[in-house]
Amino acid sequence: MNCDIVRVETPSSIELVGKVSSPVPAEGSFHFVIEKQGPAGRSDITQSGDFLVGSDSTEEELGRVTLDTDPGAFYVAHLVVEWQGGEIDCRYDSRN
């Protein structure tokens, strides 16, 4: 089981997309937390739920967040994926 947080840029926004992949069918739950911090303040977004990676698909999108591009702002995202076989977590930090 693998997880990833993908950054997609547009001219006016940034999308952070949580993904999970598995070579075999799997199911479990996820918790996706995004923190945006900048000159205008701080905001936190949380998404969670269940997922199923079936035999016909080895990758599933777990969450998607669209954020405004603010000069001087940074974004930190944390994705925790749990299933019967264990737990993994992925992090994304726009400062790195």
Results as ranks from 00 to 15, higher is better:
residue 18 G to Q: 00
residue 19 K to I: 05
residue 20 V to K: 01
residue 22 S to Q: 12
residue 22 S to F: 03
residue 22 S to L: 05
residue 22 S to Y: 05
residue 23 P to K: 10
residue 24 V to W: 09
residue 25 P to L: 02
residue 26 A to M: 08
residue 26 A to L: 10
residue 27 E to Q: 04
residue 28 G to Y: 03
residue 28 G to L: 00
residue 29 S to Y: 03
residue 30 F to Y: 13
residue 30 F to L: 04
residue 30 F to Q: 08
residue 31 H to D: 13
residue 31 H to F: 12
residue 31 H to I: 01
residue 31 H to W: 13
residue 33 V to G: 05
residue 33 V to R: 14
residue 34 I to G: 11
residue 35 E to R: 14
residue 35 E to Y: 15
residue 35 E to F: 15
residue 36 K to W: 01
residue 36 K to E: 01
residue 36 K to F: 02
residue 36 K to C: 07
residue 36 K to A: 08
residue 37 Q to W: 12
residue 38 G to E: 04
residue 38 G to M: 09
residue 39 P to D: 10
residue 39 P to R: 14
residue 40 A to I: 06
residue 40 A to Y: 09
residue 40 A to S: 15
residue 41 G to V: 02
residue 41 G to R: 05
residue 42 R to N: 03
residue 43 S to R: 15
residue 43 S to V: 06
residue 44 D to E: 14
residue 44 D to W: 08
residue 45 I to K: 11
residue 45 I to M: 13
residue 45 I to R: 13
residue 46 T to A: 09
residue 47 Q to F: 07
residue 47 Q to S: 14
residue 47 Q to V: 10
residue 47 Q to T: 06
residue 49 G to L: 12
residue 50 D to L: 12
residue 52 L to F: 01
residue 53 V to K: 07
residue 53 V to C: 03
residue 53 V to T: 08
residue 53 V to I: 14
residue 55 S to R: 08
residue 55 S to K: 13
residue 55 S to W: 06
residue 55 S to Y: 06
residue 55 S to F: 10
residue 56 D to Q: 06
residue 56 D to W: 00
residue 56 D to I: 06
residue 57 S to Q: 12
residue 57 S to T: 09
residue 58 T to F: 11
residue 59 E to V: 05
residue 59 E to W: 00
residue 59 E to Y: 00
residue 60 E to S: 08
residue 60 E to M: 10
residue 60 E to V: 15
